[in-house]
Amino acid sequence: MSKPVVATTSLAGCFGCHMSLLDIDERILDLIELVEFNKSPIDDIKTFTKECDIGIIEGGCCNSENVHVLKEFRKHCKTLVVIGECGRTGGLPAMRNNNASITECLEEAYLNCVSVQANDEKIIPNDDELPMILDRVYPCNEVVKIDYFLPGCAPRADLIWNALVALVTGDEMNLPYEVVKYD
């Protein structure tokens, strides 16, 4: 039997959840025995080359590109697992949802922020090639159907490992109290 195929992506996240995935230490060798990776920043495959069994999503949706990638994952993956607070609740990027408009966000990022140094012409990037920023940050389950959620910022490596092994082997998921945390 061929190995289950896993794809991963980071949407509006910080890559911390992917770091946590790598934090399984030497078990990464067991992981390579267990699964095959397809589209993922880990192996740098940019587009889906085959249908996948498990899609791991980090981060919510803050721009049109995130929505596009998330919908692609739903289309190509049998099971979608959201890891981390940003995908589950919007997380830190969603802090703009309740007290800042897009205009305020863009002006802060490109014009007013103390670290802005060389923008004398006061340009806010607005090229067709750039993804459009959304009106607010959306948790993944507001865009497509998500099958499983693993909380944490970042989720503990043991949580990701336990969940992934359970999904691949079909065993019951073991979620000890110490590893299910929201921070």
């Binding site: 589950r88 609740t89 997380g91 830190l92 802090m95 910022c153 929201y182 921070d183």
Partner: peptide
């Protein structure tokens, strides 16, 4: 936003969610 909260880990609401094993809220935020 639990990751930014000073009370995280000592918060009763969060602790109840942990006790009831809430992995995601069924309600839209």
């Amino acid at each position: 936003y639990c990751p930014t909260c000073e009370r995280s880990g000592n918060c009763d609401l969060q602790a109840l969610a942990y006790r009831f094993n809430v992995l995601v809220s069924q309600f839209k935020q």
